[in-house]
Amino acid sequence: MKSRKLLWLVTFAAISLFAAFYLFSNGEAETPQKPLARVSVVDSTKCIAPKEFMRANHMQVLHGWERSVVRDGDRVHIASNGSRFQKSLGTCLGCHNNRLFCFSCHSYANVKPKCWNCHLSPMETQ
């Protein structure tokens, strides 16, 4: 019985040592560099996707943008027709510049996402 407990402890100690090595070791590889691609500034007045799609999926699009912009630094959205947009809430609100654009539907359906906790909402600007 005692020996089994000892075995447990030894196993655990081994795992934690291994984990500690993994945790505190430094594993960041440096890759060779390549010149930056530069693209001309484009502005679009068309929406990134058809209305019906956006109605159902805008939150998913925005959520995906948020993740890829913040985490991966991928800033460019390529629409299905090949046109390019910057992934930004401003891209949407630049065209949909009705101050109540978000709020009329969202208050009707009582859906309250937390976007405006940080992003300045159209209602707050003037």
Partner: peptide
């Protein structure tokens, strides 16, 4: 009980 012991040690560390 056997599992709780390594967990306790883990908490300490």
């Amino acid at each position: 009980l056997n599992l709780s012991i390594p967990l306790a040690v883990g908490i300490f560390f």
